Amino acid sequence: GKELVLALYDYQEKSPREVTMKKGDILTLLNSTNKDWWKVEVNDRQGFVPAAYVKKLDP
C-alpha cells in the first residue's frame, strides 16, 4: 500500500520542485531515499518537503 506521512509543521514551498503543506496534513510518501528532502504528493501535486518536517505514519 501507499506510505503516508504527517506534516509536523507548516511548510511554504521555496522553489517549483517543492510543495506547500500545512501542519496536520496527511501526505502520500513517494520517495524517502534522500535523508534531507522527501518527495510527497499532496492535492495531486508532487514535490519535495524537508524530511524533518514530516513523520511516517504507522501502517
Rank of each mutant, 00 (worst) to 15 (best):
G1Y: 15
G1V: 15
G1T: 09
G1N: 15
G1S: 14
G1D: 15
G1I: 15
G1E: 15
K2S: 09
K2V: 04
K2I: 10
K2M: 15
E3H: 09
E3F: 10
E3N: 11
E3Y: 06
E3M: 14
E3D: 12
E3L: 07
L4P: 05
L4Y: 06
L4S: 13
L4E: 13
L4A: 08
L4M: 14
L4D: 05
L4F: 13
L4I: 13
L4Q: 10
V5P: 01
V5W: 05
V5H: 04
V5N: 01
V5T: 03
L6G: 04
L6E: 15
L6I: 15
L6A: 13
L6V: 14
A7C: 08
A7P: 00
A7V: 07
A7S: 08
A7R: 00
L8R: 10
L8T: 10
L8A: 09
L8W: 02
L8C: 06
L8V: 08
L8G: 04
L8F: 03
Y9I: 14
Y9W: 11
Y9S: 14
Y9D: 15
D10R: 02
D10Y: 02
D10S: 08
D10E: 05
D10V: 00
Y11F: 12
Y11S: 01
Y11W: 13
Y11Q: 02
Y11E: 01
Y11V: 01
Y11K: 01
Y11T: 01
Q12I: 06
Q12W: 08
Q12H: 08
Q12D: 13
Q12P: 06
Q12A: 14
Q12T: 08
Q12S: 10
E13G: 11
E13H: 08
E13D: 05
K14R: 11
K14M: 07
K14W: 03
K14S: 14
K14Q: 08
K14G: 09
K14P: 06
S15A: 10
S15Y: 07
S15H: 13
S15K: 13
S15P: 03
S15W: 04
S15T: 12
P16H: 11
P16S: 11
P16G: 09
P16V: 07
P16Q: 14
R17D: 13
R17M: 15
R17V: 09
R17C: 08
E18I: 02
E18D: 06
E18H: 06
E18A: 06
E18R: 03
E18G: 11
E18L: 03
V19S: 02
V19A: 06
V19K: 01
V19W: 03
T20N: 12
T20R: 08
T20A: 12
T20K: 04
T20L: 02
T20G: 12
M21R: 00
M21G: 01
M21Y: 01
K22C: 14
K22M: 12
K22T: 13
K22F: 12
K22H: 11
K23W: 01
K23F: 02
K23G: 05
K23L: 03
G24I: 00
G24K: 01
G24V: 00
G24H: 04
G24M: 03
G24D: 09
G24C: 03
D25P: 00
D25A: 11
D25R: 03
D25F: 03
D25S: 08
D25T: 11
D25V: 05
D25I: 02
I26C: 13
I26Y: 12
I26N: 05
I26F: 10
I26A: 05
I26R: 12
L27V: 11
L27D: 01
L27P: 03
L27C: 14
L27R: 01
L27Y: 14
L27S: 03
L27T: 02
L27W: 02
T28W: 11
T28L: 09
T28P: 13
T28C: 11
T28G: 10
T28K: 11
T28R: 13
L29Q: 01
L29C: 12
L29I: 05
L29K: 02
L29N: 02
L29P: 01
L29F: 03
L30S: 05
L30V: 14
L30I: 15
L30H: 15
L30D: 02
L30G: 02
L30K: 07
N31R: 06
N31A: 13
N31K: 13
N31G: 11
N31M: 10
N31S: 15
N31H: 14
N31V: 08
N31P: 04
N31I: 05
S32T: 13
S32E: 11
S32D: 10
S32C: 11
S32P: 09
S32H: 13
S32N: 08
S32F: 04
T33Y: 06
T33F: 06
T33K: 12
T33G: 10
T33V: 06
T33D: 10
N34L: 09
N34T: 12
K35N: 13
K35Q: 11
K35R: 09
K35C: 07
K35Y: 09
K35L: 07
K35V: 09
D36L: 09
D36P: 02
D36V: 11
D36R: 10
D36G: 14
D36M: 14
D36K: 11
D36H: 07
D36E: 13
W37N: 03
W37D: 02
W37P: 01
W37V: 05
W37E: 10
W37C: 04
W38T: 03
W38D: 02
W38F: 08
W38M: 08
W38H: 04
W38A: 08
W38C: 09
W38Q: 03
W38I: 05
W38G: 01
K39S: 09
K39Y: 09
K39H: 09
K39A: 13
K39I: 09
K39L: 09
K39M: 12
V40G: 00
V40S: 01
V40T: 02
V40Q: 01
V40A: 01
E41A: 13
E41W: 05
E41Q: 14
E41N: 06
E41D: 10
V42Y: 09
V42P: 00
V42T: 14
V42M: 11
V42N: 11
V42H: 14
V42W: 07
N43W: 07
N43S: 11
N43K: 10
N43F: 06
N43L: 08
N43I: 06
N43Y: 11
D44M: 12
D44S: 12
D44P: 02
D44K: 09
D44R: 14
D44I: 03
D44A: 12
D44T: 06
D44H: 12
R45E: 10
R45Q: 11
R45L: 09
R45T: 09
R45W: 03
R45S: 11
R45D: 04
Q46W: 06
Q46N: 10
Q46K: 10
Q46A: 15
Q46T: 13
Q46R: 11
Q46G: 08
G47E: 02
G47W: 02
G47R: 02
G47L: 04
G47P: 00
F48A: 04
F48C: 07
F48V: 14
F48T: 03
F48P: 01
F48S: 04
V49C: 02
V49G: 02
V49A: 08
V49L: 02
V49S: 02
V49D: 03
P50K: 02
P50H: 00
P50D: 00
P50S: 01
P50W: 00
P50Y: 00
A51D: 01
A51Y: 01
A51E: 03
A51P: 08
A51S: 14
A51K: 08
A51H: 03
A51M: 04
A51T: 09
A51W: 00
A51V: 07
A52D: 12
A52L: 09
A52G: 15
A52K: 14
A52I: 05
A52M: 10
Y53P: 01
Y53N: 07
Y53T: 12
Y53I: 13
Y53A: 15
Y53F: 15
Y53R: 09
V54Q: 01
K55T: 14
K55V: 07
K55S: 10
K55I: 04
K55M: 06
K55D: 06
K56P: 12
K56I: 08
K56F: 07
K56C: 11
K56H: 13
L57T: 10
L57A: 08
L57W: 12
L57F: 10
L57V: 11
D58P: 13
D58K: 04
D58M: 06
D58Q: 09
D58L: 09
P59E: 08
P59L: 05
P59F: 06
P59I: 04
P59S: 14
P59Y: 05
